[in-house]
Design a protein around this nucleic acid. Sequence first.
DNA 1: GTCACAATCGGGTTGATCCCTGAGCAGGCC
DNA 2: GGCCTGCTCAGGGATCAACCCGATTGTGAC
Lengths: 215, 215
Amino acid sequence: MTEATAPSVFLVDDHALIRSGIRAEIASAVHLVGEADEVDAAIELICERRPDVVLLDVHMPNGGGLAVLEAVTRACPATRVLVLSVSDAAEDVIALIRAGARGYVTKNISGPDLIEAVQRVAEGDAVFSPRLAGFVLDAYASSGGGEVDDELHQLTPRERQVLRHIARGYAYKEVARELGISIKTVESHVSAVLRKLQLSNRHQLTNWANERRLV
Amino acid sequence: MTEATAPSVFLVDDHALIRSGIRAEIASAVHLVGEADEVDAAIELICERRPDVVLLDVHMPNGGGLAVLEAVTRACPATRVLVLSVSDAAEDVIALIRAGARGYVTKNISGPDLIEAVQRVAEGDAVFSPRLAGFVLDAYASSGGGEVDDELHQLTPRERQVLRHIARGYAYKEVARELGISIKTVESHVSAVLRKLQLSNRHQLTNWANERRLV
DNA sequence: GTCACAATCGGGTTGATCCCTGAGCAGGCC
DNA sequence: GGCCTGCTCAGGGATCAACCCGATTGTGAC
């Protein structure tokens, strides 16, 4: 597990160019054991070859990056996943950490830094872009460290239902008519959702839902 | 202009890894004359070195890809811009063609195909991913060839800027602070956008922008 | 110079949204 | 029977959003 030499790495990205770039930058320092450009092949090959580290682009069609991450952490927990992303939004990062990622770096990282990140993840460290470390620590601190329940999970079924309508752009009155309840009840649910997710208005809620593909 | 040999290419992308990947794939067949990772440097260097082709990632912070494209087509029309993107949404493509792009390929293109695309653009051809060619032709055909008004194109630059902020969930007051203008001015711009796009509220605007990947 | 238009602001109105404090009712649990 | 939670609703106040009216400045076209 603790190779002081070259860690084995599996590469997942749907863009051939980006795979090529990563390969060119890190091939000298790691042992590339495979690549994949889509979800199913990635999961199958990773479980077969059991690399030390999976370099995973989360920005894949149908939110597939998350699917790969979950499958890998479930099927072979010894393999650590280092997420590559273009986004540095705090919500994204936290969701991925919850799903089992051991590191998160944005794609504007330099080649040498990426090599170091891969090696550190292979050795068991958690690696984050400096700007993101604060977010991650905050998230863990505020969650107690143990039963990390996904933010969506703390919403009641009715609240999730109202959330979906709001995220689609319905006005309160329309949601009320749609669900056959009073406007005041819709208000109550929305307030509860905003409070639980620590957001301040329904526009942020729309974006929150979009990022999570709840629409 | 018509080099049967290696065309000169300038590379613009804010991600070092992607630049590295493109470099590795095409360096053998073209003459790379420079790179840039942000808007101002890109415009300056391109106008100075006058490459045959600019390989441009449109997906840059603050919508900077479009700024580079507009500056280049204005300042040195002899230089042709080939757009690289992760998006294959028809609206995006059409907007870029309108802004002067001579080609548009997605990042899942293969190395050899990218080389061929660069060479064809350098020779004056227009190059599109097969799936996109239909959209482009439709857009030109249905417009009679002349006053093609893409919905996004009838917005002024300032309106597009405000639109992006609104779509991200900012309140009017936050947009005003961010852009250093009055709330009333933000209101004016939003009203103009809603009127031009024939929408009735900012929720629809958010969804409109999300569908077009403007966020 | 005139005209159009983009961009900048203001006052004022109406409805929607957000937040707070309540409240009643049903169902599950001890 | 108590207790908790989820769902339902109401009143009222503060804020925001959308639209109406108006205005000035600057730029570029004719």
